[in-house]
Design a protein around this nucleic acid. Structure first.
Lengths: 359, 359
DNA sequence: TTGAAAGCGCTAACAG
DNA sequence: CTGTTAGCGCTTTCAA
């Protein structure tokens, strides 16, 4: 266990004290230089940097965390799917976290784990993170079973598009704008002259799915239209296909808003197979703008979510909450809506709809 | 800064010493219990656990890392895309890491960062990880510019499907089986009677793209067929579309192997628009089996990569290397191939190919 | 089977 | 502008 006090290839990595010795300053001064603190003369700074370079010094984060009580890391809870939306959001979060200078730790909610998100948060807390992002919250229906209350979360939590899933003292909600987008696509369909719009929803445990449903409902209500029964899928193209077979049988269906592109594509396939043309007989819009959306047949009308912008703003607010525990949280702004009209939407067939533009 | 020595709501979280005091044992004994060390009587263990529970004790990982020199975390370098393949692999890695009991840290290679993967690795090293996974290596062409040599990587590195991108003493290569899969799909096309197979490749900086190209080439060579010029895309459906316009003009093209499904879909659209039917005139196969692959028109023949299996085995080997620095690395096994034949492939049109099955 | 002592490498107060 | 002195909460020896 001998540590060579001088330089030279030792088996253990160099410490700040080694750098200090080589630079002829105190250890604290090395710390100052690496933390960009004020009050270090340019000359000393240079000498320290040079010594550090020479030794190949890098700060020990464990020691930093222990001494300061902060890990400078943020944990994100994901759902462990490669679905385009969640995956894009995760990438946005990564970029945003990196911009803030924090490190990123990732935990999935485990498949069969009954503790779900709470369990994932717990494991993040075990690791010692300064803040938590729940990128794709789902409602685990845990009211009353105690799961929620057992975890004491004392770091700020950012939840993307949902109310707090458990009691934490400092929760920030990041609006992802899904509701407004859903409203917009529904209105796009209404504007084309459709009497009403059907909705192929995502699984309602997901808040992302609920937001879209809410937006759809709001649009119909605002325009005084009938609200047809909701069909619920599971985000998969297969479930969209299944729903499509049902909907194809109903001649009243002239417009469908699917909660994601995958389902929309399955839906279109089922409609087509049933002899209902898209968009001549039935208009379909999706959600997400997955990479192939413009190249399927027909090219899909859809909306694109501003994942990067949402993640960036959310993280700015989270970091603010971390670093200013007492201050009021920063306000959130509404992300922009990006409706992409392609060829899967059109006016309803003349036989079926009055062509009146009822505005 | 007073810390209440007893229990009670203190502002600072409880330490192992607090637990020890409450349980009436030494602090070291608490440590023993939480590390599942031998030589702790059942009675003591019980008491310690109870005290810990009561206090809401959780181990401080920073302190553990500092004292033991291990962070019990693994870092993964990703490319920051939501492409289905990379995203799926990342999710597989997360699951696999969690199974090993390590924590996961994620870093993207930054868009405009010239240091690329080396920079990402460096930042992981800064954070102090025990091992590194490079999930989607690309060739950054950095030979001679010194980028590679400057980083001293002293932890084991697992690279998925590529030779080591830089000199690190302990590098493991995880075969993802892409080459074999590419061979298999190419042979599938040959078996259908196509005289040769064109390849729409991915960007050749990606090793994943090179593997597929190699497999394609190997199949053609093994069967003594002509090797048509390679068209290179960028994974996007748009690039597949562009390539498709080119290929559609060439009547000799009867079968195309696209390096991913997105490009295949773009390609099919271009072919269709040019009047060449898929699969009657041209067969197309993709790669990845993205969620919508079965629902586009025509349903796409493709291969599915065993991301979870690859990640699991890779991580087992990485952890082995971390925990047994001296031992020989574990051997890798070949992942299985899962060819999914759907409706985008068929025998070549009679006008164009001799219908001989040349085996 | 248990405990005491000694750090791990850094930051946080204070002095100068 | 720079240095000194204490810890942060664990794991690691080494004893008992």
């Amino acid at each position: 266990m001998t540590r060579e006090t001088g330089r030279g290839r030792s088996s253990t990595p160099p410490r700040s004290a080694d750098v200090a010795q080589l630079a002829g300053v105190s250890q604290k001064t090395v710390s100052r230089v690496f933390n960009d603190e004020a009050y270090v003369s340019a000359d000393v700074r240079r000498r320290v940097l040079k010594a550090a370079e020479e030794l190949g010094y890098r700060r020990n984060n464990a020691a930093r965390a222990l001494a300061s009580g902060r890990t400078r890391s943020i944990g994100v809870v994901t759902l462990g799917t490669a679905l385009y939306g969640p995956a894009s959001l995760l990438m946005g979060v990564e970029r945003a976290v990196r911009d803030t200078g924090y490190a990123l730790r990732v935990v999935n909610t485990v498949e069969g784990d009954p503790t779900g998100i709470a369990g994932a948060v717990d494991s993040l807390l075990d690791q010692g993170v300064d803040g938590i992002v729940i990128s794709e919250p789902i409602d685990e229906g845990g009211d009353g079973d105690g799961t929620e209350s057992s975890v004491r979360v004392d770091v700020p939590v950012l939840v993307c598009g949902a109310p707090p899933p458990f009691a934490a003292p400092r929760v920030l909600a990041a609006g992802v704008g899904a509701e407004l987008m859903a409203r917009t696509v529904t209105e796009h369909l209404l504007d084309l002259g459709h009497r009403t719009v059907h909705h192929l929803a995502g699984p309602q445990r997901w808040y992302a799915a609920r937001d879209r449903l809410d937006g759809w409902r709001a649009a119909l209500t605002a325009h005084g239209r009938d609200e047809p029964p909701v069909v619920e899928g599971d985000w998969s193209a297969a479930s969209g296909y299944a729903a499509g077979r049902e909907l194809a049988a109903d001649p009243d269906v002239t417009a469908v808003f699917a909660a994601n592109d995958d389902m929309a594509i399955g839906l279109i396939r089922a409609l087509t197979e049933a002899g209902r043309r898209v968009p001549e007989d039935v208009s379909v819009v999706g959600f997400d703008d997955i990479p192939v959306a413009a190249y399927v047949s027909p090219p899909l009308t859809t909306v694109r979510q501003p994942f990067d912008a949402v993640a960036q703003e959310g993280l700015k607010r989270l970091v603010h909450a971390i670093e200013n525990p007492q201050a009021d949280p920063l306000a959130a702004s509404d992300p922009p809506v990006d409706l992409i009209v392609r060829a899967s939407t059109a006016p309803p067939p003349p036989s079926n709809g009055r062509t009146s533009t009822q505005h």
